[in-house]
Amino acid sequence: MSIEKGTLEIKALSKSFIVDGNPLQILNNINIVFPAGAFISIVGSSGCGKTTLLRIMLGLETQYEGDALIDGEKIVGPGLNRGIVFQDHRLLPWLTVGENVAFGLEKLKRKEKKLIVDEHLKLVGLSGFVSAYPSQLSGGMAQRVAIARALASKPEILLMDEPLGALDALTRMYMQKELERIWLFEKISMIMVTHDVEEAIYLSDKVVIMSSRPGIIKKIIDVPLPRPRDRASSAFMQIKAEILKEFHLETEYPFAYAI
């Protein structure tokens, strides 16, 4: 069986960090396949290991038990086939917005670079900011630049860690539409961590629900709705209720978590 490019597979993966000299288990027996071309969201309370899971798939964390495979091969480190939008925007402060977006395009010619940068800044609605510095951007603008940077290098798989977290509601909805459009157009795999259940349902083929201490996959919920999705439809609401139910069952103190 040949595996389509853009497939990520996590098999029996457990991960511990050493905290104060003792191993602390963060992820416990994670099994999941992210099929090529799928849009999958991961939701779960703060600290349940979502970022850690993304970092493993990105190749920044390599100490764990179990397997993390990309296109059937063990992930040994980062690669240009995977793009990332970090939870912190992680723009380099000494580079302009344009230079930051071009960060993964070093090998291209000047003209090609400029073309790609302009195209992607337009995409995230920041065309006028090519020569601004990150210190002159708001948090939400910086996040959008980070999305542009990740997309510019045309990865097969785009990993996003709360990419729209700092955006206002309207820009957020606009960016969700854009992400969906890009995803449909580029046919790449997208894996997104989010705290916004509606956002997850709006965008994803599947929503992965994680729970914490140690992080496990609690449930994977299919979202078989036609696109573009209507947030007010009853099918949408039903899925939302189903996901929220998982969270409320998890603890006696529902207010204790920030989703």
Binding site: L60, P78, L80, I84, R90, F103, E106
Partner: peptide
């Protein structure tokens, strides 16, 4: 460390 990771992700090595 964040910037080192970023460089690592985009395969920046040696002189670059």
């Amino acid at each position: 460390k964040n910037y080192h990771e970023l460089a690592n992700v985009y395969n920046y090595k040696n002189y670059r």
